[in-house]
Design a protein around this nucleic acid. Structure first.
Length: 170
DNA sequence: CCCACAAGTCGCT
DNA sequence: AGCGACTTGTGGG
C-alpha cells in the first residue's frame, strides 16, 4: 500500500482509558487514527490544540466521543467525517465494515460477498490491514470463517480487547 | 509487465 | 490439526 505523506492540518491526541490515541485530520475529515504506543506520534506543544481550525476541533470532539462510546460497547451517536486515503477497492471494504455494529462480527468472506467480490477474500484481509482508522472503521469485528481471530495490524491483543469491550466472546 | 505476498477459505487426510 | 490448492488486490522489481 502506497500512501503519500502529505502535511496534515492537524495531529491531535485522544486520551482514553485504554491509552493515548493519535488522530490526524486532513481538510476532508479524519484521515488516520493511531493506537497508543506507536512511534510515529507527534508531541503537541501547549496551546497547539487551540490553534487548529474550529471545524477540526469539532471533528476531534466527535472522534473522541465516538471512541469512548465504542470502548463502552455502544454505537457512536455521531462520527466525524471519515477521510481515509486508499484505493477504490479498499474504500469499498471500509464502507462495508462500517455497517457492522458493536457486538457483531462478520467473516472476511462475508465482507467479500457484501462488496460483490465473493472470491476476493484475501484481498479483503489486505484492505482491513490497510485501514488507517481502526476502531471507528471496525476492522476488529472481522473474524476468520472458523470463528478465530485472524490478524490485526495493531496487534491481536488490541483486537481481543476491543471485542471484549463489545461483549464478543471468541 | 511479471512476480511474490497476505488480517482467507475450503477440501482432504 | 495439518496441508495444499485456489484466488485477488497490491506493491516492488
Amino acid at each position: 500500500m502506497k500512501r503519500v505523506t502529505s502535511i496534515s492540518p492537524a495531529t491531535l491526541p485522544i486520551v482514553t482509558p485504554l491509552g493515548k490515541f493519535t488522530a490526524r485530520y486532513s481538510e476532508k475529515g479524519l484521515a488516520e487514527l493511531e493506537f497508543p504506543g506507536q512511534k510515529t506520534r507527534v508531541a503537541l506543544k501547549r496551546g497547539a490544540v487551540e490553534r487548529v481550525p474550529a471545524v477540526v476541533q469539532r471533528w476531534h470532539r466527535a472522534a473522541a466521543a465516538a471512541l469512548q462510546s465504542i470502548f463502552a460497547g455502544r454505537n457512536p451517536e455521531q462520527l466525524p467525517p471519515l477521510a481515509p486515503a486508499g484505493t477504490p477497492f479498499q474504500k469499498r471494504v471500509w464502507k462495508a465494515l462500517r455497517k457492522i455494529s458493536p457486538g457483531k462480527t462478520r467473516s472476511y468472506g462475508a465482507i467479500a460477498q457484501a462488496i460483490g467480490k465473493p472470491k476476493a477474500v484475501r484481498a479483503v484481509g489486505g484492505a482491513c490491514g490497510a485501514n488507517p482508522i481502526p476502531v471507528l472503521i471496525p476492522c476488529h469485528r472481522v473474524l476468520a470463517a472458523n470463528g478465530k481471530l485472524g490478524g490485526f495490524s495493531g496487534g491481536l491483543e488490541w483486537k481481543r480487547q476491543l471485542l471484549a469491550r463489545e461483549g464478543v466472546k471468541i
